[in-house]
Amino acid sequence: MPYEWLPPSKNYEPRWPGRLVEKIDLENGLVLEIWDYSRRLAGDRWLVGMLAQIVVEAPPEAFSRRELYEVFCDEEEGKVYYRYRKERTFVDERECEALFEQLKSRFLEAALNYLSHPSFKERLIAAEVALYERRKAWEEQVKQKDEEIERLEEEWKDRPI
């Protein structure tokens, strides 16, 4: 899986620094952060990277079980994220700033109305919590199957085949 740059947090430190370029207060009360995580690749060639992010606290009532919410808080700090990432590689050093501004302006032109919709927060929470709960259910199924395999291996280890 390729490396995806994320902003620093309490539990995460990125491989290379980025900078918060802009915070935009949306009409629905959310805050859109625009991050520049561009870096030099080789010589005068750069990776130009833009990350747009909205951070939302997930309430306990969004989860089907209180235990899942507590695990979610431990693992994800109680937050769900909208993230949009756009990158260009091997960009001439002289073109980096202009390309970043172009990526940012095209994103804002296309997505600002969608992100500002009054129900965006509720839909984001519902979608991300559902994904998280499905992932946890899958992890539990895998754990149970592994335990069953271990039990069967132990039970059959001394039997002739």
Rank of each mutant, 00 (worst) to 15 (best):
V48E: 01
G29R: 04
V55N: 12
P160E: 13
M1L: 12
E4T: 15
E153D: 07
L115K: 01
Y132H: 04
V142E: 02
P60V: 00
R45E: 13
F90Y: 11
P2C: 09
E13N: 13
K104I: 06
E150K: 15
E77D: 02
L131H: 15
V80I: 02
R123D: 11
R45G: 06
L30E: 05
E77F: 00
S64H: 12
V31Q: 09
Y12I: 05
T89C: 07
F72Q: 00
R123T: 10
L103W: 05
I24C: 04
L152Q: 09
L6H: 15
V80R: 00
F72K: 00
D44H: 05
E147H: 06
Y81L: 10
P7S: 11
F72D: 00
L51E: 02
V21K: 03
L30H: 06
E67T: 04
E70A: 10
N113S: 14
Y82D: 00
I149C: 01
F120H: 05
E147M: 11
G18K: 06
K143A: 11
M50T: 09
R19E: 14
V21E: 07
R65F: 09
S64G: 10
G43R: 02
R45F: 07
E122V: 05
L6Q: 14
E147C: 10
A137T: 08
P60E: 01
E4I: 14
F107H: 09
A111D: 10
